[in-house]
Simulated scan of single mutants.
Amino acid sequence: MATPNPHLISSIRKTIQKLKNGSPYQWGHMGACNCGNLAQELTNLNKGEIHQLAMQGVGDWSEQLRDYCPTSGYPMDSMITKLLESGLTLDDLTHLERLSDPKVLAGIPEAHVKQLSKNNRLDVIRYMEVWVKQIENQWIELNTRFDKMHSEKINHTGVLS
């Protein structure tokens, strides 16, 4: 799963809000689909620019993610690199496009999982809400552990001085 960080969490939340507010959504459009909407937020490219980059390659998001090469020099690969630098993984993006991550699906009520459709705006929102909450919880857990370790180190150092 993604490397949790505030920028990624904020970007996913903004994407959710934009989808709720009616931003363009079209699963068959590389810049307005599940990954495309998140890519807009993370890259500051618009849907048309993302679609144009994607059309220079072959296939949908899943196929282009599978063929991703960070040193290819292809514009789509450069954009994917930027998404990965934000904390996402290739698996995260592949799962987002298909709404298929088992960990995320485990957080969605079973009745909804059975009806989940990769090309339905409300299902994408539902999936992203569960996913961002999981990433947020990981962020909180990591920082709580760090704070506790840091506090224990300070207390230990104070005892020895």
Rank of each mutant, 00 (worst) to 15 (best):
Q17F: 10
V113E: 04
L116K: 04
S11W: 00
P6N: 12
W131G: 01
M30S: 13
S117I: 03
G107F: 05
G158N: 14
K20V: 04
I16C: 07
Y127E: 04
E110W: 09
Y68P: 02
T157Y: 10
S11D: 02
M79T: 01
D92A: 00
N46H: 03
P102V: 08
I12E: 07
N46D: 15
L19F: 09
E152N: 11
A106S: 13
E97M: 14
D123F: 03
L105D: 05
P75A: 12
L83N: 04
S10H: 10
I108Q: 05
H95W: 10
V104S: 00
E152G: 08
S23T: 12
G87C: 08
N37I: 01
S117G: 04
G87Q: 03
S100V: 03
K103D: 09
N34G: 06
V124Y: 12
Y68W: 15
G28R: 11
K20W: 08
S161L: 09
T3N: 10
D60V: 04
K20E: 10
M149S: 08
T89N: 07
V159I: 13
K148W: 14
L90A: 05
Y127K: 03
G36C: 04
K153D: 07
G31V: 05
M76P: 00
L8R: 08
S23Y: 05
A111F: 02
A39Y: 01
A111T: 08
G107L: 06
E110A: 15
M149E: 15
K82W: 09
W61Y: 06
T71Q: 14
V132E: 07
K103C: 05
V113H: 03
E63H: 05
K14Y: 01
T43M: 09
E85R: 01
C69V: 11
G28V: 03
I135E: 11
N44S: 12
E97W: 10
L105W: 06
D101G: 02
